[in-house]
Design a protein around this nucleic acid. Structure first.
Lengths: 188, 188, 188, 188
DNA sequence: GATGAATGAGTTTTCATTCAT
DNA sequence: GATGAATGAAAACTCATTCAT
């Protein structure tokens, strides 16, 4: 049921999918849909939260698999690719919700999602902070900014992949992404 | 009239703003709205394209004001801050359209916008390429990826600012953003 | 539901009957109307086609009940009276559609109806042709013209009846109509 | 101005022609239209009445040009062809108004037109009555019915012509039409 | 007198939600 | 518990008509 909704929302967007269509695709009666979810918004929220949680769990785990900060970041980039490659149609919804589509679907409805997102940003910031303390990283920017930057950097690669999957595959080697942070651009 | 629509769309999202509300806010009758725009979509598209063009023009100009690639990037980051600070409510729409809200508003309607966006990405990629050739930059990644990365990095800072303006001001000094690219994170 | 629409359309004309009025009269919610018919035009078309088919079937049957051409015509005139007397309010719509209201309701929408009408005209023309061959009729005019003439003649009587039912009843005796064709006006 | 309206109404039908379109075609401002006609209905009514009067005048004159009843009818059929051939686009409106499109445009608005039409039917009935008295005609039917019949017969030929001008030209020789009345169909 | 921008009531249509079966 | 027919509020859009210039 949720997966029918997911596919449709991802394809057409929340406002362009009537409940009746979800019911049909899920092979349920529309009344049954309303037995499970209070309303359309509730269905959407459940959909997003469930997936968001799954993602953040996987990503958080990726950060915890090793003690080495550099490896943590590599694991994150790798895991993000895996998670989303396996859930292609969720990405749109996820990105829409986390990337300022704030206004797109429901006003102020995303508080929960953004909170979870915020928490993840914090965990990632801690990795940068720890890395800086351990002198593995240089303090080239505020750890929170670094966290936001890495998340957005990977999102950018996901976008490229979403739009032109063959032209812009999500990199197998996490360093393709990470080098943008790791290596200095300037050639002094 | 466009500015009334802009404010409402930016605040609530396209699908949550009825035409009559725009009319009311603009202090026009609803019929008058339809004298100026064929339909709701036309109003939205006009709104977006007009601003998008203005932005890209300003940003492109920023890239052309100097021959030094590093300065070009600084100018870009600075200009982006200025342009958007002055047009706070357009940003949401702009970001929504360029950042994969692809599915949110109108399916396939954003072809024009994405084309313009794509062109800008190309110009910026050329700056990186030129910088690499001149040995000002190291080839830490594909120039197009660098371009996408910088655009997303600045977007990330814009997001932070949008959500918590006092907590996360868009940096005055462009290097706050650029150092993430310029300086290598790794402390080898 | 169709009968509510029929009555209203017949009374006020297609363009002067809002959907909500049909819904009201049919004691349904307006949404229910749209469950049954895709849109207003579809409702109208269904209404017309259903009745048109019923009529033409009855009239065609009238032509087939006997082998005698004169009796065929009598049967036709009689049947037309019966059919329409029983469906008073449909006549207006039927006549409007077949009698050059071509432009009144929907441009080019009546193709189906006119085709059916055309077919009936052909069958009737065949009766005249057969009658002429068998020497029951004189060839006073082209059979197709005779067919069109008889149809219009009976329509004329229906009009008279529609407008002033007591003053101009549709004739019980079909020869009242047919004599206009049958007997020569000229007294030579 | 009237002729612009005429053309548009005839082509698309009353309800499908916005005032604004008439104004445009007539190269007047819409306000000017309303200086001349109280409202859309008034414009239409004026259009119809003016033409109806012109027609009836011409047709009545045709009946008066000779004392011979047979010739009167021939003149009528001939004149009707001439009048309408010269005013092709009026026919639709005229026929729609006289032929029970009663309900198509305005409810009960056609009183004037139908009165004029009724008057003409009476004059024509008088011709038949006189012919019968003078033994030029046989009393094959009530004179009023004969009048209605002839009018409808000619209308039928006009319809044919309207729909397929080359296939069904309006007959040059009035007897092509009149023989349907004049000669008896039955071959006894 | 002419204009045409502005109006807003009135239409068609959609779709989230309910509730009797 | 499941169903899906029925609902009607709300949206987009049109167009006859007015009136300030």
């Amino acid at each position: 049921m949720l997966s029918a909704a997911l596919e449709l929302f991802s394809e057409k967007g929340y406002h362009n999918v009537p409940m009746h269509e979800i019911a049909e695709k899920a092979e349920f009666a529309i009344g049954t849909l309303y037995k499970f979810f209070r309303n359309k918004e509730d269905l959407y929220r459940t959909l997003i939260l469930e997936n968001t949680d799954r993602f953040h769990e996987a990503l958080t785990k990726a950060l915890e698999e090793t003690d080495d900060e550099v490896e943590k970041l590599r694991n994150y980039v790798r895991a993000k690719g895996e998670v989303f490659r396996a859930n292609a149609s969720v990405i749109r919804l996820y990105l829409a919700e986390t990337q300022g589509a704030k206004f797109n679907v429901m006003v102020g409805f995303d508080a929960d999602i953004r909170e979870r997102y915020g928490k993840f940003l914090q965990s990632l910031a801690l990795v940068f902070e720890a890395g800086i303390k351990k002198k593995r990283f240089k303090r080239i920017a505020d750890p929170y900014h670094l966290s936001v930057s890495l998340v957005n950097l990977t999102n950018a690669f996901l976008f490229l992949w979403l739009e032109e999957p063959e032209h812009h595959p999500y990199p197998e080697d996490p360093d393709t992404v990470l080098n943008i942070l790791f290596k200095g651009l300037l050639d002094q």
